[in-house]
Amino acid sequence: MNIVLIQVLLIVVVVVVAARLFRSRGARSQAVRRLGLMLFAAFAVVSILFPNLWNRMAAVAGVRRGTDLVLYALVVAFLSFTVTTYLRFRDFEARYTRLARRLALDEVRAESTPSQTGPTSSPTAGTTASPTVPPRRDEGSNAGGDAPPATEQA
């Protein structure tokens, strides 16, 4: 088996990308992600060393050429990546919104303490801009454990 330059390059790239992706957060989903990633990287290396593997898999799957199979796999991988990224962004946005909302509401509460605008001062306004915050229902119900949806990459 003689290794071509492109093979060396591709293997380096796969390993570097996999190593980069390894450094992300979350407990079980992270473990799953890492296992999947390891398999994916291993398979990438194998298929770089034995390009004919894809041809044989293509034959099994009923596709003419191995490159076609790679293309189809990429399309699926890209779509799932797009969706999981979108969902993760949504999750991120929800948290960020809660943070911004809390800031905004706390600001008004602090301002209204020395009775500023508004018809009457609110009942919490008696204490001087203290950190006593009335329970708000969006935390508690939704804070804590909901990590982003378990992401399977590619």
Partner: peptide, 20 residues
């Protein structure tokens, strides 16, 4: 009474803030 979002979040977010 003015409640100010520190950044732009969208109309839906603004409504929920107003509700709260």
């Amino acid at each position: 009474v003015v409640v100010q979002h520190p950044v732009n979040l969208g109309q839906g977010a603004a409504l929920q803030t107003g509700f709260e």
